[in-house]
């Protein structure tokens, strides 16, 4: 790998993780409880332990927090999609 490319990659990674760290602190205290009610009464240990993951996934979490999402999403598996009925199941709608 050329040195210049390595320099750029490391600089971008450092910027991404620094923004992540700046975001992670308010998120651990306020944002996590906003997007997931179970996190509202969380312990200090929990707030600390989610910081590395927040640094890695901050764009997704920032999007949900800004959008005002109040519950974690429901998982998508064939049974849950089918149970929602055709109006909520694009896969079924597509097949008519």
């Amino acid at each position: 790998m050329p040195v210049m490319l390595a320099d750029i990659l490391i600089l971008l990674a450092a910027i991404y993780l620094c923004i992540g760290l700046l975001f992670a602190i308010p998120f651990a205290f306020f944002g996590a409880g906003q997007i997931d009610p179970t996190a509202r009464k969380a312990t200090a240990g929990f707030k600390l332990i989610i910081i590395p993951g927040t640094m890695a996934l901050w764009p997704l979490l920032a999007f949900r927090w800004l959008k005002g999402v109040a519950e974690p999403p429901e998982e998508k598996n064939p049974h849950r999609l089918a149970a929602r009925g055709p109006e909520n199941n694009p896969a079924r709608e597509g097949k008519g």
């Binding site: 929990f46 989610i50 590395p52 993951g53 974690p72 998982e75 998508k76 598996n77």
Partner: peptide, 20 residues
């Protein structure tokens, strides 16, 4: 391995949903 260790808590399991 960092990404996996950092997202190992149930908070991530719930918020990413189990399949993701």
């Amino acid at each position: 391995l960092f990404l996996m260790a950092a997202t190992s808590h149930d908070f991530w399991l719930t918020n990413l949903t189990p399949p993701v």
